[in-house]
Design a binder for these strands. Structure first.
Lengths: 223, 223
DNA sequence: TCAAAAGTGTTATCGCTACACCCATGG
DNA sequence: CCATGGGTGTAGCGATAACACTTTTGA
């Protein structure tokens, strides 16, 4: 048994800025390719958990403790990193825009998923896989909510779904489908989504307890 | 950058013996835990591809070249292996029973998925994740066919699906649904599935070309 | 002609899709 | 009172699920 492989982790962090899906991009701090765009990444030393490293990194860059984090894939091609055999266990994270929009560490920035730059190594492939994963997840689990504030309008979740699935969704049918699931709580409160709007929008909350209960009984969310 | 992690791979190999789903189990060849049940596994040295190692291992044990292989997950917990930090990139493979039923290397054997033994480290968790993956895959991709002979009867694919999804499926509805997809070719041939059967069964083939063509046009298989 | 497995149709219900107008409000 | 965005209902269609008998063939 030989210990001759380096371990790293990259995290594709996604959020919804109200208009578009955005992803967090950093830049390489050392040669080679110093300054080149890359996903937020870290080495993982032998004694610590990969997930822990990913979480600490998110905390450092965005100042968040709680985070939706899920393993994406291991990227382990022999020649993916010219420095040697580096196995990258990539994660995919979803965060609430209001909480993370200010970046705490210089060098990182949010970019629209559509216009992400070319990155080092196989990081574009990782980003692509993360988007595909999001697309699938959003259809099968009520996961969109982690990208929205605790209370949100129907328009928010509607356009979030349109962005995730990259297609137009009929407003009425969308509402019906979500309402049928009975996973939303009508808070009876309203806000003006944009300044100057004529009519306020109702605010909803996701009913996590109900979802957990239904899931136990074999319910599966389908969108 | 420190190279202080060992890399290994395990493969969950599954097949359908006509009655049940089966998985390939090996045993540990060295202390500690010599003789203990484990998934087929191998070290991966720094210069070779993980997938390549997995394929070579399958070739050695089962004598197969072509194989349906897909990455399952990276298992990388700090304390998963008492010998040190071992990252295990696990794969999941599906094979045609007729081709693989004879095991070429002593120490390996097929066991029913239902009665799989307790294994070393986190190998039971890996097996469990592979089964869950199969369950999902089988619903969204016509993947069951790789576990069947080129020509198969409706009963075969029917009971394969029942085993994968672990529930009874109505014979008529199942047939209708599959037929509607038009992905099966009726070979016009028949066989007696079991010796002594009174009536022969029709043989079908999966129409891979048609599936590929439909997929390009945005068709998605749903079961 | 009988036993055994293969193969076949119909109906009721449900969810999906497509589509257009009214409502509440602030300016 | 009007302009703007928020919010609502219905009808047709296709998919699903439940259900039992007929056909074929070898023995």
């Amino acid at each position: 048994m030989k210990f001759d492989v380096a371990l790293g982790t990259s995290v594709v962090v996604m959020a919804f800025d109200g208009e578009r899906l955005v992803a967090l991009i950093g830049e390489k701090s050392q040669e080679p390719y110093k300054g080149a765009p890359m996903l937020p990444s870290n080495w993982v030393s032998a004694g610590v958990s990969v997930e822990e490293v990913a979480k600490r990194m998110m905390n450092r860059i965005l100042g968040v403790e709680k985070i939706y984090l899920e393993q994406l894939n291991a990227f382990a091609k022999v020649y993916r990193n010219p420095m040697g055999r580096v196995v990258n266990i990539a994660y995919f994270a979803l965060l609430n825009w209001d909480v993370v929009k200010e970046v705490k560490t210089p060098g990182y920035k949010w970019v629209s998923l559509e216009t992400s730059p070319e990155m080092i190594f196989d990081h574009n492939e990782i980003l692509e896989m993360a988007y595909e994963r999001l697309k699938r997840r959003v259809k099968r689990r009520p996961i969109g909510f982690v990208m929205l504030p605790k209370q949100f309008t129907f328009n928010m979740i509607h356009s979030l779904y349109e962005q995730c699935l990259r297609k137009d969704l009929d407003k009425r049918n969308f509402r019906k489908k979500f309402m049928r699931s009975e996973l939303l709580i009508d808070t009876e409160e309203t806000i003006f989504e944009a300044p100057g709007n004529k009519k306020p929008s109702r605010l909803y909350e996701f009913n996590q307890q109900k979802y957990d209960k239904l899931t136990l009984k074999g319910y599966d969310f389908k969108f």
